[in-house]
Design a protein around this nucleic acid. Sequence first.
DNA 1: CTGTTAGCGCCTTCAT
DNA 2: ATGAAGGCGCTAACAG
Lengths: 347, 347
Amino acid sequence: MRVTVHEVAKLAGVSAMTVSRVVNRAAYVSPATRQRVEAAIAELGYVPNGLARAMTSRKTGALSVVVPDVTNPFFTHVLHGAEKTARQAGYRVTICSSEADEELERQYLSDIISNQADGVIIAPVGDSSRARLQVLRRNNVPFVLVDRSVAGLECDLVQGDSVGGARTLVSHLTSLGHRRIAMISEDEGVSTARDRQRGYEDALHDVGVQADPKLFVRATVTEDFEGGARAMRQLLTLKERPTAVFVVNNMAAVGAIRAIREGGLEVPGDIAVVAFDDVAHAAVLSPFLTVMAQPADMFGMLAVQLLLERITGRDEARRRIVVLPGDLIVRASSGTRVNTKESRRRR
Amino acid sequence: MRVTVHEVAKLAGVSAMTVSRVVNRAAYVSPATRQRVEAAIAELGYVPNGLARAMTSRKTGALSVVVPDVTNPFFTHVLHGAEKTARQAGYRVTICSSEADEELERQYLSDIISNQADGVIIAPVGDSSRARLQVLRRNNVPFVLVDRSVAGLECDLVQGDSVGGARTLVSHLTSLGHRRIAMISEDEGVSTARDRQRGYEDALHDVGVQADPKLFVRATVTEDFEGGARAMRQLLTLKERPTAVFVVNNMAAVGAIRAIREGGLEVPGDIAVVAFDDVAHAAVLSPFLTVMAQPADMFGMLAVQLLLERITGRDEARRRIVVLPGDLIVRASSGTRVNTKESRRRR
DNA sequence: CTGTTAGCGCCTTCAT
DNA sequence: ATGAAGGCGCTAACAG
């Protein structure tokens, strides 16, 4: 089978312990024996068994990052930031795509415990994740939430300013004269959905508009854009169509825009669209969607930093919450000033 | 510390061995004791230690997927396909982003051996990866290449039809009347770059055009689009500018288009652009780039299937190569028929 | 400076 | 149907 310390030891004429010391650059090994051991290692192509090491050291050097969708550019950048930061600190990163599925998430978290990851970064499926995360806690696996909080669970968290961001986006629409503004949200168990809804309502309230329940729909947000498309189609059936739509995230927005066009309408001519999170490559290729762009890489980086502090630091019980502001990027999809009764009156 | 078999055993009043048998659903445990053990497991929140298990079973249940860039939508979908297929087969997937860096790749592969992954899927940095992959082989870690082959290395491989795909893309351009067609390629150590160059030259040859070395530039392809942009800027300095450009991949194409626009020119008006690999979300938001779309998810799925066969199957020494065709998707960036001297003459 | 002992948590093997 | 012994590969803790 695979080469072990013992074979190296035998070849070098020393004990297994000495080999271990050489490998780990640890203390006092005479240059002469060190050299013999190194030669033996090279000759046999010895690679230490990380599992065995982890067994004794109780450190696997692995962090797990759990996201609902690896193909979503937002999470892709969270991953990237996390991976980079973790690597620089000597940790590997295992990526799990929960597909926004509770059972799958449960399975992954169980795997993570089983495989003794040193820590976990997770964008939870939703509030239902609470029970699963408490199992992590019971097993002493430190974790940090990214992007989404979980109701009733106190823990470190890196998130965007969803309330403020949504308010800014929707205010952008109202400032253009829109008053009949719909929102496409997602499952209410997701904290960002709730927060963005609040920002949406705040912005409407700012201009004296009462949120109309008929203009609020939820999309099942999947990797495919279908969820957003379906929600949009539903809005298009209304007698009084909205003149603008605020979409809870980038993927749903892409679906919504497709649905609008398939319905024979135009963005922003017939319906203006704004959304949370930028769409990386699309933004460069043909800048179109007006968004609240979030520094996704930074989410990942900071989450790992908090996590590493939990792992290495003596547990300062204090819970840390980092909130990162986003940037409003105005592009074509939100259109220009429109003439509504209200806006005409004001001029 | 973490709960172990022994604590469960003590609580249930049995031996550790019996606990193990219950956990593994193995042989002969009386219903009565089984029940007591299960109660103890639940009460203590026991989760088996995967490392210890792997130590004895010599199976970690982990596959590693190494890609040059996790934010590239092409690789993102390869990952997704791989992850899904692996999970269904009971394997976890660890993702490594080599950043197209040789040293980083070496480190990852070394980690992978060390952590006893059961197998590896890798889109290698380039031909230089050969040495590193041979280390894998020496350590009996089965692996399958995706997307790129490695010169001088015989092994299972899932790839696209780069020669044919490039030829189709470039022929699309020649059929529109273009004759002065540039290519933005990448490092020649990457098999797809070589293959696509061949397809490019073949297509030119088909219409009696000799490839002009001045029209061939290489981009350092990074996660950022800068590589493609720089290459494009270089082409724009030519006295006789190309009328069309074939770009080796999606990321570089995005950069190239940005550079063209920043240079005050238009796509496709001044320069037509075609590229390999679609840009997922952008394609829906504002269909623009003419591409050879590859079934990336399928790359990942098939690669895992081949890998699992290597892992579980008795090694049928035969090497397997799967070549998946792409789809030409014609959009705005390649433009319509142009009038060149040649095309005018022909009419 | 180097070797010996023991044990990480589990499971294979052999008893009972 | 259940238990005891031993070992997977490595290293911490103690010798010397």
